[in-house]
Each structure stands twice: as C-alpha cells, then as structure tokens.
Lab assay of single mutants.
Amino acid sequence: VTVHVDGVEYDFDNPEEALKFAKKVAEDKNGTYEVHGNQIRVT
C-alpha cells in the first residue's frame, strides 16, 4: 500500500498501518485522505 503525501510516497506492507498513518497525517495538516485501491492520497 502506498500513501502519497505532498508528492512523497510512503510504502507500507500492512494496509492497517498505512491507513493509520494516512489518518494521522491528514489530521495533523487538517486535510483529508482518499483511498483508491492500494493507493491512499492525503490532501
């Protein structure tokens, strides 16, 4: 699973970890996250 944040890609073997990371980053920057299959984009 790849999490995209501001043009940087973070790869996770564990989808739950990826989702947790995306949620935290989105909260920290008052943004949102979208899941597209095995890609998660934080905006």
Rank of each mutant, 00 (worst) to 15 (best):
V1G: 03
A18H: 00
K29S: 12
A26F: 03
N30S: 08
P15F: 15
V42E: 02
E9C: 14
G37M: 06
D6F: 09
L19W: 07
E27Q: 13
P15S: 11
V8P: 00
H4C: 15
E27N: 11
V5L: 08
V35R: 08
V3D: 01
H36R: 12
K20R: 13
K24M: 11
E16A: 10
P15A: 14
G31L: 08
E34A: 09
P15D: 08
T2W: 06
D28M: 14
V3C: 03
A26T: 05
E34K: 08
H36G: 04
G37V: 05
V42H: 02
K20H: 09
E17I: 06
E34Y: 12
D13K: 11
N14H: 07
E17R: 05
Q39M: 12
T2H: 06
D28W: 13
T43R: 12
H4R: 08
E27G: 10
P15G: 09
V3E: 00
D6M: 10
K23I: 12
E17V: 06
L19S: 03
Y33R: 01
H4V: 14
G7D: 07
K24Y: 08
V25I: 13
P15T: 11
V5Y: 09
L19K: 04
N14E: 09
G31S: 06
E9M: 14
K29I: 15
V35P: 03
E16C: 14
F21W: 09
Y33M: 07
D13A: 12
V5W: 07
L19Y: 08
T43F: 15
G37A: 06
Q39K: 09
A26H: 02
V8H: 11
V1L: 07
E16F: 09
F12P: 00
D6Q: 06
H36L: 13
F12Q: 00
V1T: 10
N14T: 13
E34P: 01
V35N: 04
T32F: 12
H36I: 14
E9H: 12
Q39G: 05
A22P: 00
V8A: 09
P15M: 15
V5T: 04
A26D: 01
H4P: 01
V35H: 06
K24V: 06
Y33F: 12
E16S: 09
D28K: 10
T2E: 03
E27S: 13
N30T: 04
T2S: 08
F21H: 02
A26Q: 03
Q39F: 13
K20Y: 11
T32A: 09
D11R: 15
Q39P: 02
Y10H: 07
D28I: 11
I40V: 05
A22W: 02
E27R: 13
H36C: 13
D11F: 15
Y10R: 03
R41F: 15
V25C: 14
K29Q: 11
K20C: 14
R41D: 06
E27A: 14
H4F: 14
V5S: 04
N14I: 07
G37F: 06
K23N: 05
K29C: 14
E27L: 13
K20L: 12
V1K: 04
F12Y: 04
R41C: 14
D13Y: 07
E27M: 13
D28A: 14
Y33P: 02
E34F: 12
V5E: 02
V1N: 05
Y10M: 04
K23P: 00
V42G: 01
E16L: 10
V35T: 06
H36T: 11
E34C: 15
E16V: 10
F12R: 00
L19V: 07
H36Q: 12
V35F: 08
A18W: 02
A26P: 00
K20I: 12
